[in-house]
Amino acid sequence: MAPLISIKNLYFSYGEQLVLENINLDVNRGDFLAILGPNGSGKTTLIKLILGLLKPQKGEIRLFGQPSATFKERWRIGYVPQRAIARVDPVFPVSVAEVVSFGLLPKKSFPRFMKASDWEAVRRALRQVEMEAYERRKLSQLSGGQQQRVFIARAIVAQPEVLILDEPTTGVDVTTQERFYDLLGLLNQKGLTIIIVTHDIGIVNKHVKQVACLNRRLVYHGTHEEFCSSPRLKEYVGEHHLVVHRH
């Protein structure tokens, strides 16, 4: 079966600064891939290239077998952006249900009016992230962890096949992070392919199946088990992160 996301010989630079060099990476159905790397290693840039927010200067990205530039069914990829919680404007009068409903828009054709079945889909997505009771609440009145769940609901409401999260636990306390990763593990078990960009090596312990280490180039790509037993692990993540056994 063809990979859902296929990246070949990808290069990208901001001006003179080369950020990504000769990246080759496939993501297959059912994968739970963590992209690890230090600050400025090109993780977010890679995600933006996959999402079509940036254009590759060299190389190719194929999504579901189609070239990224002409790929139209964007709803097949759910996305939770970096610092999503920090960007929530406390003045913005938007309810939890309204935020989740945004995720349905790419799947609809003009005029994109909401039907009763759409609101049912919104409730289903909220139920999946255990936030159904908060449907009518103003988003900014929720805690960081609850907001993060709402953003996940927005990303999965259109029933995408891939979910991409860019540093989703920034600003969320440790207990909430644990619950959050458990939720991602559950979604992956149900068949959702997940790509998570993180500094947090701890998530590798939990549910991740594949690991990619990025530092301008792809310095490692393999399974969780290989990653944990690799003699070069220290190089990838630093000595203080070496306890990476799955519980």
Binding site: W75, P81, F110
Partner: peptide, 22 residues
């Protein structure tokens, strides 16, 4: 009225709206 939902999404989170293909 016709662009109600799209306009709110773009106003609320431009990057995600762009990534969604709007």
């Amino acid at each position: 009225i016709f662009f109600y939902h799209e306009l709110i999404y773009v106003t609320f989170d431009e990057e995600s709206a762009r990534a969604a293909g709007l």
